[in-house]
Design a protein around this nucleic acid. Structure first.
Lengths: 147, 147
DNA sequence: CCGACGCGTCAACCAAAGTGAATGTGACTA
DNA sequence: TAGTCACATTCACTTTGGTTGACGCGTCGG
């Protein structure tokens, strides 16, 4: 049987539909596909996409739009293009989040830049030293994130 | 004369090339197109893009890649997909890019996590040690990105 | 009641994105 | 010098993103 194209959660389709439902003037209903296409094209000064294509995207008949069109759509709805990459954000591992936090410290950023290119041998020595420092300062063992 | 496709500033091509130039292990030159394509495909578990396509993108022969591919590329270089979306990421400094490159090294990532929370005092000691290691290994002074 | 209008839906079509295999080229080496 | 190897480059080909035009349906005004 033909695979029924269901709007996978986190897909472009579901996100786009959510935009339509959510982002619109308070005194009226959601924008229509032709409206959005029209507005985008007018603003761009040339044809960017047609109404049908928006429909296909919302239906999941077309996934994976191009850079420029996704940007235009995000722009129209006033959201960051990152909105369509959210899964990427959600997939951000715990390690990545802790890294991001640590890197807000200027000293640590400098340390990274300095350490870049060092041999594994040197890195090992430095790691040992850091472990000692942690112990001396009474910090817990890292490696696993606290719940 | 035939219109020479020059890498327009802020274009995908120029940004991508900048990534190649900037984000790579310190002890070697930039990644090659086949390398990157290979890495991306391996990580994805299926074919995402070929080496030729990367070349075309960098040369400006192909503009406007697909959502998924752009995501894969950004992911490989450890930058947000926003990097390819104009203005918003104009702020992204070279330092951040070099950080991204360095953080692809697992040892360095671990070091960051370990160092997080240490006192400035300890950080200073570690920095000193790293500087020594750099000197011993004959690495140049960092801090400024080579032109 | 009915014709016009606009939107969602569909399917055939077109153009651009992306591929694969062959060729050119420089570095490294026997 | 010849041979090899890996990468950049090229181009003909395939795939799929995106368009065009037609059809059905609900709504509104006469």
């Amino acid at each position: 049987m033909p695979v029924e194209e269901s709007a996978e959660a986190g897909s472009i389709a579901s996100r786009l539909n959510h935009l339509f439902e959510t982002v619109h003037p308070a005194d009226r209903g959601p924008y229509t596909n032709p409206e959005v296409a029209q507005a985008i094209n007018t603003k761009a000064g040339h044809q960017v996409l047609g109404p049908t294509y928006l429909w296909q995207l919302r239906k999941g008949k077309r996934t994976d739009p191009t850079h420029s069109r996704l940007k235009a759509i995000a722009d129209f709805f006033g959201v960051s293009p990152l909105y369509f990459y959210e899964e990427e954000m959600a997939k951000r591992t715990d390690e990545q989040l802790r890294l991001a936090g640590a890197l807000r410290n200027a000293s640590i950023r400098q340390m990274v830049l300095d350490a870049d290119g060092l041999s594994e041998r040197s890195m090992a020595a430095i790691t040992t030293m850091i472990q000692s420092a942690r112990a001396m300062e009474g910090l817990p063992d890292p490696g696993v994130a606290p719940e």
